[in-house]
Amino acid sequence: MISGAIHVGVIIFLIAGVNFDEKPKHITPAPSAPAVQAIVIDQKKVDERVARIKQQREDEARKEKARQDELDRRAREATKARELEQKKIKQLEAQRKQKEIETKRANDAAKAAQLKQKQEREKAAKAESLRKQKEHEKKLAEQAAAKAAQKRKAEEAAAKKAEQERKRKAEEERKRKAAAQAKAQQEREMAEAMAAEQTALSKTRNKQVLSEVGKYQAMIQATIQRYIVFDSSMQGKSCRVFLRLARDGFVTASQTLDGDQVVCRAAKAAINKVGKLPMSAEPDVYEKLKEINLIVSPEIGH
């Protein structure tokens, strides 16, 4: 392609070199052989010219490549230099920031030192004031100590007297407790003796106790029913109640368990009204009656 372009360029150049203003001269035709030789000579010149142009183009291309390579090299160097410069700028910026931090720390440290000095001065002034105050208080204390010594002697005398009185009362209390313990021990021994006796008699008296329990249970039931305000709606109905009794028959607690609500309310009211129910003096009988469940069935005439 390059060779063809060169040939076309040479032909245009040769045509351009022809003077068209001149009138054509009469050319005497030469013999055929010399004409061929002239054409050969002209082609050789053209080829030489083409070769020179080609060489020139190649030289220019090499120079252009060298120039481009140089430009690329300079661009790389410039890029590298710019990167180094940016890195240096970053380092300088980091150093600047670090210096700012160090300056701030130094300023903060200076302020802290100033504050500490101020606090120490205030502390020293406070300590001096406190020392003076303590000195004054010491004088007052020394003055009060003399008065306190006299008061202490009087208090010691009073305390000694109070201690003697306390010991006397403590001795009396000890004697009282000892007597009470002795009495309680005697009562326990008597109770144990009675319990032993009751145990010995329990087998023979079991039937008697049960009979007494049944008798008093019936009496308790009859007493409650006697105090019930009867209503015809209660006929044939009942209520089961729980009773807790003291040794003298006093009702300490009562509760309706189940049954007709009307009868239960009436039974509860009757128990509260009675307050105290029949109770045997026999301990065995009382033990079986102190907590009992009863069926209350009010009837006409009770």
Rank of each mutant, 00 (worst) to 15 (best):
P278C: 05
C239N: 05
A246C: 08
K237Y: 03
S233D: 14
I292R: 05
V285D: 03
P283E: 11
K276T: 09
K237R: 15
V251E: 01
A266E: 01
L243M: 11
S238T: 15
D258Y: 15
I228H: 07
D258L: 13
D231C: 12
E291V: 06
R247L: 13
F250D: 13
K273Q: 10
K273A: 10
A281M: 10
V262M: 10
D258C: 08
S238I: 06
I228V: 10
T252N: 15
V241W: 04
V285Q: 07
V251G: 00
A246E: 14
D284G: 10
K290Y: 11
K237F: 05
D260C: 04
S238K: 15
P278M: 05
A267K: 07
D260T: 03
A267C: 09
C264S: 11
A267H: 06
R265M: 10
G236V: 01
L294S: 03
T252C: 13
T256F: 12
D231N: 14
R247C: 11
I228M: 07
V285F: 00
C239F: 07
M234C: 01
D260R: 00
D248T: 14
S233K: 13
L277H: 06
D260V: 00
L277T: 04
E291G: 02
G259L: 02
S233L: 11
E282N: 08
Y286A: 09
M234A: 03
K290Q: 14
L277F: 01
S280F: 02
E291Q: 03
F230T: 04
A266C: 07
S280R: 00
E291F: 02
A270K: 06
R240D: 14
V274W: 04
A269C: 04
L257G: 05
S254D: 08
D248M: 06
E287I: 10
V262A: 12
V274N: 03
K288W: 04
S254Y: 01
A267P: 02
E287F: 11
L294D: 02
K268G: 02
V229Y: 08
C264G: 09
S233H: 11
K237H: 06
K237V: 05
Q255R: 12
K276L: 05
F230E: 03
I271H: 00
V263G: 06
V274F: 03
R247W: 14
E282S: 06
R265L: 11
M279G: 10
P278D: 07
R244W: 12
D258Q: 15
S254H: 09
G275I: 04
D260L: 00
K288M: 08
A266N: 01
R265W: 12
K237C: 03
V263W: 02
T256Y: 13
S233A: 13
C239P: 02
V274D: 06
K288N: 11
